[in-house]
């Protein structure tokens, strides 16, 4: 979706302000939100693309005003309710009123040291790769109304395939519960001038990670 989250190339947000000696969490609740998200995806309650898509649907004014972990919490509340894992009444009451659904597994404290490592997104291909490193491609001019990982600034642009990363679960399908629909994944690199016009830094190159359905041959 063409949402507020798709920020690449926007002006007006000001300087990047780094905080010296920043702690992992500024408030204890931030750590709980991060851990809840990890535990719920581990349990198979939803996948990372559902978490991202729920954040993208946060109304723009709220999105811009919310802190990072506030956005995570809002997205988690959306997923919990949309997926029928708890009701609005239960979340308002702060207690479960009915037994929970059955999830795939539960993250146990003893498993944290070994199972915190990210899972693999590799999937068996549905067909041969259409592109290879060195191929010139054009990204499609598409505006899906749901989740996609092709940023607006890199649509309808000519680039070069630099790497092929194998075949991965396809976020656009996963976010809509349409299964993995595995797609080949490539690094596609663009000249700064192709993205930003003749005034761009001539020494700039930008790459995106592009799933095959985002690309057409030149």
């Amino acid at each position: 979706m063409d949402g507020i989250h798709d920020m690449g190339g926007m002006d007006g947000f000001g300087k990047v302000e780094a905080e010296p000696n920043e702690p992992p969490f500024h408030e204890a609740w931030e750590g709980r939100v991060m851990a809840l998200q990890r535990a719920m995806t581990y349990a198979g309650a939803w996948r990372i693309d559902h978490a991202r898509y729920a954040q993208e649907r946060i109304p723009p004014l709220t999105y811009l005003a919310a802190s990072y972990y506030q956005k995570w919490a809002l997205a988690m509340l959306t997923n919990v309710q949309e997926r029928g894992l708890a009701s609005t009444e239960e979340l308002a009451a702060g207690h479960a009123l009915t037994p929970g659904a059955t999830l795939k597994r539960k993250f146990a404290a003893a498993a944290v040291p070994s199972d915190l490592t990210r899972g693999s997104f590799f999937r068996p291909p549905q067909g041969p790769a259409r592109f290879k490193p060195g191929d010139r491609v054009r990204t499609k001019n598409i505006h899906p109304t749901a989740h996609t990982r092709l940023p607006r600034y890199a649509r309808d642009k000519i680039g070069v395939v630099e790497r092929c990363h194998g075949c991965h679960a396809y976020p656009d399908a996963v976010a809509l519960d349409r299964g993995d629909d595995p797609q080949w994944l490539y690094t596609v690199v663009f000249e700064g001038r192709e993205l930003w016009g003749p005034d761009s830094d001539p020494m700039l190159k930008v790459s995106i990670e592009a799933f095959e359905p985002y690309l057409e041959p030149l």
Binding site: M76, A86, P99
Partner: peptide, 18 residues
């Protein structure tokens, strides 16, 4: 966030120790 953690714990989805 506290309400969310309590509900998800009582539902049996997460373990606060984890």
């Amino acid at each position: 966030v506290r309400a969310l953690e309590t509900v998800l714990t009582e539902k049996g989805y997460v373990d606060p120790a984890a």
